[in-house]
């Protein structure tokens, strides 16, 4: 049974992606485009040269972190719909610390990154404590926290960080994740050192969840709160801890944007969608750290490659959104795919 589950965890996402791509091809055919040219354009747009590769990695970085943020909470049975707000608040905090503090890089950069994580963690702490102590459903609270993050951040940018402007100044070099070396390698893409942080975070999640007593407790609480309580675990504490760590991951994603990609923060007219995409990444990655890295890379590549499709293949970029939506649809309906696989296996026998 265990091996079966593992197999499904890997097979279902792969099949879903293939089905999504096939469905995309059919749509391209139906709307009079050449799917092969479309997908070649997509591929080139994502991995064609150093620049696109660098940009793909840049897009992947925060998606890994938001994917982890959703998956981590899910391991404790919590739906963290608030990654979006945690990203925004983490972004704000990282840039803020980047702007106001004056210190050598070795202190300044870690401090700014940490500020993003702490702010995100705090944004996870509130829904966590409300859930643990009062039983308020985390989905509702995290959704509301998203709006609070968005509007508060915009107001702070306008009236605290600037004088009514829409973008802050750029952070100094000492707080920046940007890397001249990486940029040089990738024809001046915006790829930055953040990818290392994201990969390390993925490793950290795997380690916490699979190897430590914290992970043992977090998962136990997710599976069965009564048994966890019976065995002496502090259920409330674990719920809060899970949301804080999840929020910290998402906050880091915001720090990646603020300290790496943009070097500043601007007033946002709407959500960044990084947090919401994180839900899809977690789902596609089967809530497993390694799966999330792969899924984030796929999403990053699709989004980056989409830019190339209208110019060289005449396919509208929206098609990529449709493909992504279809992939998610297929993963979500994994029950169907499981069923089909089982059927298939039976017939083989």
């Amino acid at each position: 049974m265990i091996s079966n589950n593992k197999m499904f965890g890997i097979l279902v996402p792969i099949i879903s992606v293939l089905l999504g791509l096939i469905a995309g091809a059919i749509i391209m055919l139906g709307s009079g485009h050449n799917p092969i040219r479309g997908y070649v354009a997509l591929w080139n747009g994502a991995f064609g040269d150093g620049y696109t590769l660098g940009e793909t990695i840049r897009r992947t970085t925060p998606l890994i972190l938001t994917g982890l943020a959703v998956a981590f909470a899910f391991k404790t049975g919590l739906f963290n719909i608030g990654a979006e707000g945690q990203v925004i608040i983490g972004w704000l905090a990282a840039v803020w610390v980047g702007l106001v503090i004056d210190a050598p890089m070795i202190i300044h950069l870690p401090l700014s990154v940490l500020a993003g994580a702490i702010a995100g963690g705090l944004w996870g702490f509130l829904p966590g404590i409300l859930k643990a102590k009062l039983g308020v459903h985390e989905v509702i609270v995290t959704i509301m926290m998203n709006y609070i993050a968005l509007f508060t951040t915009n107001e702070i940018i306008r009236s605290v960080l600037t004088d009514g402007k829409t973008t802050t100044e750029s952070i100094p070099q000492t707080a920046s994740l940007a890397s001249a070396w990486l940029q040089g390698l990738t024809l001046y893409s915006r790829v930055h050192y953040g990818i290392l942080i994201a990969l390390f975070a993925a490793f950290l999640m795997w380690f916490i969840i699979e190897r430590t007593t914290y992970g043992y407790e977090l998962k136990a609480v997710g599976f069965n709160q009564h048994a966890s309580n019976y065995s002496g675990m502090n259920v409330s504490k674990n719920i809060i801890l899970s949301m804080v760590i999840a929020g910290a991951f998402a906050g880091l994603a915001g720090a990646m944007e603020g300290l790496g990609t943009y070097g500043s923060i601007s007033v946002m007219s709407g959500f960044t969608n990084l947090g919401f995409d994180g839900i899809a990444v977690a789902l596609l990655g089967s809530n497993h750290a390694f799966g999330i890295v792969i899924a984030a890379l796929l999403f990053g590549a699709l989004k980056e490659g989409a830019g190339e499709m209208p110019t060289t293949a005449g396919v509208p970029t929206e098609l990529v959104d449709i493909i992504i939506a279809l992939i998610i649809f297929f993963v979500a309906s994994s029950y169907m795919i499981r069923w089909a696989i089982l059927r298939f296996k039976k017939e083989e026998k």
Binding site: T213, Y216, F223, N224, A227, Y230, G232
Partner: peptide
């Protein structure tokens, strides 16, 4: 089922439910 076991944990993991730490 309610208190004694975490059904989605392996038997091994359940054996240390009181002593894992």
């Amino acid at each position: 089922h309610k208190y004694g076991l975490v059904l989605d944990y392996s038997i091994g993991e359940n054996i240390v439910l009181q002593t894992y730490y």
